[in-house]
Design a protein around this nucleic acid. Structure first.
Lengths: 129, 129
DNA sequence: TTCGTTGCAAATGTTTTGCACCTGA
DNA sequence: TCAGGTGCAAAACATTTGCAACGAA
């Protein structure tokens, strides 16, 4: 692996994600960064998102519903995806990492992590008709 | 929603998935069904996979690693994805649905389900260098 | 100077869709 | 008959990549 070099664009991607509590797609990151870097390209955004995710400085969220989303919050937490408005929310909940032990029983490989996404109707959508 | 009509192709898609314990992609389904239906199109395969998944007769698995996969087994279970060979396996484990209650605490919406994928190194890859 | 990074555009891989024809009920 | 299903090809998306120019160390 090559040594990373500083880049304004990469810093801006990270900073932008840290400033948001929603979970932007690559395209949203791109659109917003264009204000500060009018010439930034989508390829650069994808390259940096991928690098940052590999380094563990951001989290990539795959919902299976359109484009991947990215999260600047890296403390362990889970996500909720609304079936109606497709919004992704952070869940404030106690750790469920004990499910790793449950899954590991009788399994011949080595399980080291899990990704759990919860689904349902979000608080906002419940109120609407 | 329109009334479904019988179709040989849809039956064959369902039957093919029921016959496999791995978790084929749409393209794998397509390639295999071509033996029985030389003119079947990828579009038809996708349309039927999508229909069957909506009806709950098969499960769509999004791993975030290449194409989606499909599972003909619909009894509740979880999946393991190997970081090395990217194989998807069924996990035989006790229910972890109690995490729904944990997630629901302090959450304003209505959580009705979860998808949990486990990651690590599978039994086969552990043996290899 | 060196080598990672960027912008641009083209390419890739996956999935969806428009349309004319076919088929089950 | 008629609404749903199919094959084919084109389109739509999301993401990746080749390359020449740029910029940090």
């Amino acid at each position: 692996m090559p040594t990373l070099k500083y880049s304004r664009q990469r810093e801006a991607v990270k900073e932008f994600l840290a400033s948001r509590i929603d979970h932007p797609t690559a395209d949203t990151v791109y659109t917003n960064l264009r204000e500060k870097f009018p010439n930034i390209s989508l390829g650069t955004v994808y390259r940096n998102l991928s690098l940052l995710a590999d380094m563990g400085e951001i989290i990539k969220i795959t919902t299976g519903d359109g484009a991947d989303r990215f999260d600047g919050r890296i403390t362990p937490h889970n996500h909720f995806i609304c079936r109606k408005c497709h919004k992704v929310s952070d869940l404030e909940m106690e750790s469920i990492d004990s499910i790793l032990g449950i899954a590991q029983k009788n399994f011949p490989g080595k399980i080291d992590s899990h990704v759990t996404n919860f689904y349902g109707i979000c608080g906002d959508c419940i109120k609407k008709p």
